[in-house]
Design a protein around this nucleic acid. Structure first.
Lengths: 233, 233
DNA sequence: TAGATTGTTAATCGATTAACAATC
DNA sequence: TAGATTGTTAATCGATTAACAATC
């Protein structure tokens, strides 16, 4: 086993004995594709044991060289002439993404979006357990959707501590987002999924990902418009 | 005026006389930042007339050289030594993104997410008018959220035609997404915002953007895990 | 062995950013 | 003019992809 100074971090810390280590940084673009591959593998033919990069690329809608390069960052899970062992590869991707445990999650903002997200099955399916919703409006406090309680904002720090919450989903108005994000960071949250249409300014210790619904639509209209112009021009 | 062969497309087609043309392709990464800039400009100090690339960069959370490069693709809207005229720049970004008109939009899937999206103010604020929701479940057909009707899937083609719908928001289960996307394409929809956790395989004539909620959370867990490992390692 | 497919190299492509001349 | 800031160039960085040797 190499000394700790030889590796940046080591996939074997949580992994099984059969599996090679993950060495060095995995590029962000690769990370963002791993969940897609995971889903494609889960959807692969039930009987199959192996899956080629070509097949995976076809389902995921990417280039097969990209699949091979992406997977090479995880270590060697392919068999030349055969393909990738589906079960092994799935396990390794889950391990690299940290999906071999459950993540207590809170949703801040119990408006339309927050409540819909609380009911969204996809989160639970992927191992994200929503332990509570929070809202500034005292009238909303009480039993919430899908059996998840809606709590007062004052409870935030206590719940984060008691339930060991690592992830917060931010579904508050843009005007409130920055303030709430700062409170979450202060309470010890290290990961925020931000649905508020605003750029959060927060320390490096907190990872923020933004899901910006209007922005996505506006990018679509750019293409609609340019297609229109090229047709009429 | 240059001949049509000299430009790929021309921002003046819908633009005012004062404004320079947009020539050539705007890089996708730039397009995806334009909505952010637009929001930052709208949020800029109400009294101000000009805004520097440095200020804009600060609010948008990007490098100021990037702001200048991005904006340079739109033509020359800055004044050296002064900054960008906020109102002019806003107008030009809206024009480039095609936001100088309204877009009739449909939401397919009247589940939790579809209904929450129908109620989401951000869409209407940005000029996206949701004309109808659609659902396979006949029991859901009838008056829907925010005064928007829930219609049977059979009505899809008629509504798309009659209301000149260009954008569809896909909020159906993954298993149904591909089939619905093909119907939408067939009906003449050119832009799809896909919330179903699946990669759509569809012709080049249809622009698809994916919003993948579980994937976003899984990217967060990757960083949580690697932070955990580097702390304990 | 012959056929298939990986893992990796090297080329290409595109995006970011520092630096600075142009110019308000 | 002096100070400020743009617009653009060139350097750097990172991501994609074709090609192919390694090898099952």
């Amino acid at each position: 086993m190499p000394g700790p100074s030889a590796v940046l971090w080591d996939g074997d810390v949580l992994g099984g004995p059969r599996l090679a280590s993950v060495r060095g940084r995995i590029p962000p673009t690769t990370i963002s594709r791993l969940p897609i591959y995971l889903r494609c593998l889960a959807a692969a033919s039930p009987g199959a044991t192996f899956c080629s990069s070509e097949q995976l690329a076809e389902i995921a809608g990417v280039n097969s060289a990209q699949v091979r390069k992406d997977l090479s960052y995880l270590g060697s899970y392919g068999v030349r002439g055969v393909g990738y062992n589906i079960a092994e590869l799935e396990a390794q991707i889950r391990r690299v993404l940290g999906l071999d445990r459950e993540y207590p999650t809170v949703i801040v903002g119990a408006g339309n979006l927050g409540r819909a997200l609380a009911r969204y099955d996809g989160f639970a399916d992927a191992g994200f357990r929503v332990v509570a919703l929070f809202d500034v409006d005292p009238a909303k406090v009480g039993p919430g959707p899908a059996g998840i309680p809606i709590l007062a904002m004052g409870e935030l720090e206590r719940v984060v501590r008691d339930e060991d919450v690592a992830i917060a989903i931010l579904a508050v108005p843009a005007s409130a987002a920055q303030g709430v994000a700062e409170r979450l960071a202060e309470a010890g949250i290290r990961s925020i999924l931000n649905f508020a249409p605003t750029v959060l300014r927060i320390g490096d210790g907190v990872e923020v990902r933004r899901v910006d619904l209007s922005t996505e639509l506006q990018i679509l209209t750019y293409h609609l418009r340019s297609r229109l112009l090229s047709e009429s021009g």
